[in-house]
Design a protein around this nucleic acid. Sequence first.
DNA 1: TCTTGACTTGGACAATGTCCAATGTAGGAT
DNA 2: ATCCTACATTGGACATTGTCCAAGTCAAGA
Lengths: 139, 139
Amino acid sequence: MSDLLERLRGRGWRLTAQRRVVAEVLDGEHVHYTADEVHARASEHLPEISRATVYNTLGELVSLGEVLEVSTDGRAKRYDPNAHHDHQHLVCSRCGTIRDVHVHGDPLSALPEPERYGFQVSEVTVTYRGICPDCTSGS
Amino acid sequence: MSDLLERLRGRGWRLTAQRRVVAEVLDGEHVHYTADEVHARASEHLPEISRATVYNTLGELVSLGEVLEVSTDGRAKRYDPNAHHDHQHLVCSRCGTIRDVHVHGDPLSALPEPERYGFQVSEVTVTYRGICPDCTSGS
DNA sequence: TCTTGACTTGGACAATGTCCAATGTAGGAT
DNA sequence: ATCCTACATTGGACATTGTCCAAGTCAAGA
């Protein structure tokens, strides 16, 4: 993820403490935090960081294609740093946990031409829902 | 859709003017209104209907499986009365228009067993995104 | 080290949704 | 036809998530 910072600096990004901390929070596998969760975790390292900056930074990372925005429920959007590997999401209907998963074939090809209604279709997101092992056994 | 009202009455639903109007608004093909849009349209026929009632009624219809809740962007949820025919959604990235579409095969089968991580997967939603014909030519 | 334009901040505001106590009413009972 | 009452509705306060802006701050090139 520090590659990320380098890459962004190459694109003219000014490298501030705030942006560094946000990038650190997003480091790791299977990270799917909401903006406020990112803010909370970032605050542990940089207490004065403001919500506005976290929102701005996440928005920029999304625009730059470095982070994916995921809205599985109607609640807060979540941010997925795993933007460079094609994947889909598996969501627990009970606790909301998200896992990255990989599917067979290209979901785009499942949409026949006549079902495209003249749209220039460029993207497809697939979300699987079910009960995760913890929730199955737990309650 | 008036079948709907009958069906619900059979389930013990009390049939009020408000619920009737909400059901009427949701009548038709390719309807994907937000709660506030439903409220606006319902108000044309029953001016005193409150937002709370619209939200309540939509929530009940969703619980009863008569209407689907769709959240394609992080914005307002949309309500899709076409709950009894399996379908997916095609969304215009520019204007937000939604179309119901039908895909080849069962998207669930594209998720291999080892990619299920012990989840009891029961549902899959596929959302295609692109630019609709109006937006392509228009601007 | 200086300068400057990009970045950050806090707080007001907007959009969407939830909750609740008071009031109204659908539909069964009489 | 009328009454009862449990269920439904209402309006407004509140919660959550996100956006905007004017003023202050700072990274990084000169």
